[in-house]
């Protein structure tokens, strides 16, 4: 029973990682850049949701929508102002710019909301379910998180598979020049990717802070790095890979904390990453690209 409890908790936190990892992986697939500012978009989303519920007294669902809208606009703005001028240059230049954006967001948040942690009110109001005389407790947050992530994953799979925009995204990630020659508006597609990734980050921010209710300007960085790890485990650039990697990472983290060592859980998670990359150098579901001379 205990194992089941940890498994469920692991899947729950893993689902949050998966949603964040989707943002990393989509942006990497299309723009071929590591967007290190993604973790901070999560934090902004959580703060927006916090403000809407606590200062304006609006219901949770409105706060989530507001966070999604703000983050979407933010994502598109960041792409247009900071990343687009550098498109096609060294990937390292884009990486450093992304780090600049990340510093900017963290410090702007610190300026607006202060460094003192805010306690985030969970968006879930119903009571936890208890099974087998309390041996297995499933909280509302866990249910909502898993439900939302399933919804997101199904929605995203349908979007990339069936819609025109989704197909355009896949085409751009496959070969940007060829896609452009086929009449796909590459700029618009990249903007759309950032928009979707950032909206997902907002959702992830709210879910994350509902589970771990402390909110501060650095809230996004560690989950951001974890989710990035998850994206790489799954094979960066692959959407099902990000989902698999996220959930796997959540389960590994929960179990290693419980059965091996709380202090070393970070080291264990990253060691698993290295082991997986040793066996499969492009991640679990990543494509093995043949090198041509």
């Amino acid at each position: 029973m205990q194992v089941l409890q940890y498994l469920i908790n692991g899947v729950s936190i893993g689902s949050v990682y998966a949603i964040i990892a989707l943002g990393y992986t989509m942006v990497y697939g299309i723009a071929k850049m590591l967007n290190f500012a993604h973790g901070d978009v999560i934090m902004v989303g959580a703060y927006i949701s916090f403000c809407v519920t606590n200062y304006m007294g609006l219901p949770a669902i409105v706060s989530i929508l507001a966070a999604m809208v703000v983050c979407t606009v933010l994502g598109i703005l960041i792409e247009k102002l900071a990343y687009k001028p550098l498109r096609g240059t060294s990937s390292l230049a884009v990486l450093i710019t992304a780090i600049g954006v990340s510093y900017f967001l963290q410090n702007a948040a610190q300026l607006i909301w202060g460094t003192a942690p805010k306690s985030f009110t969970s968006i879930v109001t119903f009571k936890p379910f208890s099974f087998a005389d309390g041996a297995l407790v499933i909280t509302g947050e866990v249910i909502i998180t898993i439900a939302v992530s399933i919804l997101v994953m199904v929605g995203l799979t349908l979007f990339t598979g069936k819609t025109r925009m989704g197909k355009a995204m896949r085409a751009v990630s496959e070969d940007r020049d060829a896609a452009q020659l086929m009449g796909i508006n590459v700029n618009q597609t990249i903007s759309m990717t950032f928009a979707i990734g950032s909206a997902l980050a907002a959702i992830a921010g709210v879910l994350l802070c509902s589970t771990v209710p402390t909110l501060q300007p650095t809230t996004g960085s560690m989950p951001g790095i974890r989710a990035f790890t998850a994206a790489v485990i799954g094979g960066i650039g692959s959407i099902p890979g990000a989902m698999l990697g996220g959930i796997l990472l959540g389960i590994i983290e929960t179990f290693s904390k419980k059965y091996i060592s709380t202090e070393f859980s970070d080291a264990i998670v990253f060691a698993v990453l290295i082991l997986i990359l040793l066996v499969k150098p492009t991640g679990l579901l990543g494509k093995q690209v043949q090198e041509k001379v």
């Binding site: 900071a82 240059t89 710019t97 600049g100 510093y103």
Partner: peptide, 11 residues
Amino acid sequence: LIIVMLCTWSP
């Protein structure tokens, strides 16, 4: 940092 990166690298 962002401005320097944009100025030195952007085509």
